[in-house]
Amino acid sequence: MCPSKSELEALTEKSTGQKRALIQVLQDIQDRIHWLPAEALEHVARTLGVPLAQVYGVATFYKFFSLEPRGRHVCTVCLGTACHVRGGQALLEHFERKLGIAAGRTTPDGKFTLERVNCLGACALAPLAVVDGRYYGRMSEAKADSVLAGVREDGDP
């Protein structure tokens, strides 16, 4: 999914000429379409007046930014110390089996992206998974299945 030119303009317009707005603008685009296509980076570089190489440098530095298309739903499994101790690894493997993809990949139909994260800072809720921005604490395999089923039924095409 690529944003249209007018969409990109709307997302970057208020930051015209402001180099320091770079990360915020990239975040806005990432939020909107879940990844950063090359045309978007080029547009941001032109509008903000930041060299394209530096834009690319920032985009590749932060794990939050993706330079490849991501699924419409993003599942993130925490493997921080607390989650790890309480079965985070098994939970991640369950997600991998269920979605049929390895961590860091996107399903061929473009529906799900699975990611692992080193700590979300909510260790009291371990093991923790995040689906579409919602945090699910004390996650179990059964709970994961129902969350995924709920997302699947969510009126997606």
């Binding site: 060299p51 190489a53 530095f61």
Partner: peptide, 9 residues
Amino acid sequence: ASVLAFIHR
């Protein structure tokens, strides 16, 4: 020219 930057992490 700003052709180069540090890339990746």
